[in-house]
Nucleic acid binder design. Structure first.
Lengths: 107, 107
DNA sequence: CTAATATATAACTGCGTGGTTATGGGTTAA
DNA sequence: TTAACCCATAACCACGCAGTTATATATTAG
């Protein structure tokens, strides 16, 4: 039973796949061909990565003629933000002494 | 050449390993035995996971007698926060029309 | 209609990795 | 000193997955 965190973390763990997602975040909507050009892997590999990202809810696809345009769903990163905030919140709630907190940040 | 993002993402991708890190974040310093008790895997497996987390800079170890105490280095999550902020910042800078932005959040 | 293009899928492969058991090295207890 | 304990490492295994090539499907171009 994969949790939402599982899905997002594992989807973004692979460097190639994360690179594709980053390109979509920066460059906006792009076709598979455009993504393949700079991905450093074959077109089928890119299609598979896009499939994983889509299943994880990180991208949307739009078919137009014989090409497929993909866009990043940045809101899908919300669980990631929540998770990191949870981890760091436990931190802050544990040490209310600011000095102690700063000392621990330095180590 | 693994980037800092690579290291953190791949270290946190595995559910068991991420669970161990979460326990350290919530519960503070804990021994290998304590972590093993609730990890659902063998002690050597836990030790290996802790080794990966340590190499990623996500935990610190402290030897005391015959047991090893581990603590979470939450500051090591900073690259993760930076990365998500980068991805979402590109978003906001692209659409300065708030309505357009909200519409896209709904899809 | 035919050829070329764009993408997805199938089938296969190699390797990384998470798991195990067995063992070693160091530390406390008897 | 000997035994029990804690942890790390070694050696091995099984499986998942990222990559490939080949092919199917669909759409545009000639």
């Amino acid at each position: 039973m994969p949790t939402p965190h599982d899905v997002i973390f594992s989807a973004l763990a692979d460097p190639t796949r994360r690179g594709i997602f980053e390109r979509l975040c920066r460059g906006g909507e792009q076709t598979v061909g455009g993504l393949t050009a700079l991905a450093g892997v074959s077109q089928p590999a890119v299609s598979k990565h896009l499939g994983v990202l889509k299943k994880a809810g990180l991208v949307l696809d739009r078919h137009e003629g014989r090409q497929t345009h993909y866009t990043a769903r940045r809101q899908a990163l919300a669980p990631l933000v929540d998770w990191t905030r949870q981890m760091t919140e436990f931190w802050e709630s544990r040490f209310d002494d600011l000095d102690d907190l700063l000392k621990r940040m330095d180590q």
